[in-house]
Design a protein around this nucleic acid. Sequence first.
DNA 1: ATACAACTTCAAGTTAACTTGAAGTCAAGA
DNA 2: TCTTGACTTCAAGTTAACTTGAAGTTGTAT
Lengths: 127, 127
Amino acid sequence: MNYTITNVSKMTGLAPSAIRFYEQEGLLPYLQRKSSGTRFFTDDDIERLTFIIGLKDAGLTIREIQECFTFCDRGDETIDKRIQLFQKHKSNIRSKICELEKCIQRIDDKVTFLQQKKNTSSTISDI
Amino acid sequence: MNYTITNVSKMTGLAPSAIRFYEQEGLLPYLQRKSSGTRFFTDDDIERLTFIIGLKDAGLTIREIQECFTFCDRGDETIDKRIQLFQKHKSNIRSKICELEKCIQRIDDKVTFLQQKKNTSSTISDI
DNA sequence: ATACAACTTCAAGTTAACTTGAAGTCAAGA
DNA sequence: TCTTGACTTCAAGTTAACTTGAAGTTGTAT
């Protein structure tokens, strides 16, 4: 299937301007145009965009995402090297998740504390 | 112990200007000053900064971090209301974790693919 | 007493990642 | 044919999160 930029915007949640920006930054090198100049997107493009969104949410900068793709696309590195790069990204993301888990733990502690307070006394002030 | 801003900068890896900025944004409301006006930091402040760095690394904005602290600190809400706020905040963080898990899954898929490729053929090009 | 390092504030500058706006092109329908 | 809506480019504007620079203050060493 082919999609217009507005279709893709609705499918991905990205603003059309953001999609154009990503193309401009080299994140969508295989994007095709009609004779009129209008962009058209394939399912592969959608998949790539979805992956971009994922990496973005995981905290990678556009530059890093671009590097990731560059790395994926080039054939002058060994597979081991590429696997290594992915593993590195993965462990970065894992540590991010860890931080968030810690945050949730802290919040849980507070809630437990408040819950206990509610069940025993009734002065509303500290923590 | 007490520390100067340069001490804290070395301990945390944050630039002094960043620490001042965090104070200005309300992330360090309990920060004390000497009579001269110079900031001095306690171990509690360091702990708070470490927590801030963790949340930042996890992708929270300064506004979000500030809200997190505000929830913890304010006494003008009922306990139920505060618990509610915590739960909401928690579910936000949970969905962030979810995104990151998805990203890891994608990376794992890529790695599996590369691994298989390595074990069977040897042409180096796609994905 | 004076120099110097380390701090201070405040305003302006920077970078990433977009967004907005102006001005123009193109294809389809009345 | 003309209008309308969806697209295009390009330049300038915006926001977050800092950084940099200028100008001033303080505490300590010579």
